[in-house]
């Protein structure tokens, strides 16, 4: 098991390499963005890339956290961060 460091909303987080990013995010809180009209908290739902509820920004590009794997140095920004 290789431990790596990633960045989430500017904070450094140490975790295992290759994990679904959702696992790391959810160990903080189960939501990391807001719904468009109601501003309700949302996080992973389908877990397989089809609902887009888990959206984040990884290294500057829109991504689905449930399909991302943790890799050293990746920079993650969530909707709850100060984007």
């Amino acid at each position: 098991m290789t431990m790596i460091e990633i960045e989430i909303d500017g904070a450094s987080v140490v975790c295992r390499e290759g994990l679904p990013l959702t696992e790391v995010l959810m160990s903080g809180a189960p939501s990391w963005r807001r719904s468009p009209k109601l501003g309700a908290p949302r996080g992973m739902f389908c877990g397989m890339g089809l609902c887009f509820e888990c959206a984040v920004e990884v290294d500057g590009t829109w991504a689905r956290a449930c399909l991302e794997r943790t890799r050293a140095g990746m920079r993650v920004r969530t909707g709850e961060g100060d984007i």
Binding site: R16, V24, P41, M44, C46, G47, M48
Partner: peptide, 25 residues
């Protein structure tokens, strides 16, 4: 059903199978 922490049964399984093996919540 839209509350965070409500997830698909398949999403839970995928997390167990492809993650560390423990649910993070």
């Amino acid at each position: 059903w839209t509350l965070p922490g409500v997830i698909g049964a398949g999403a839970a399984q995928r997390m167990l199978k492809t993650g560390s093996g423990a649910l993070p919540m």
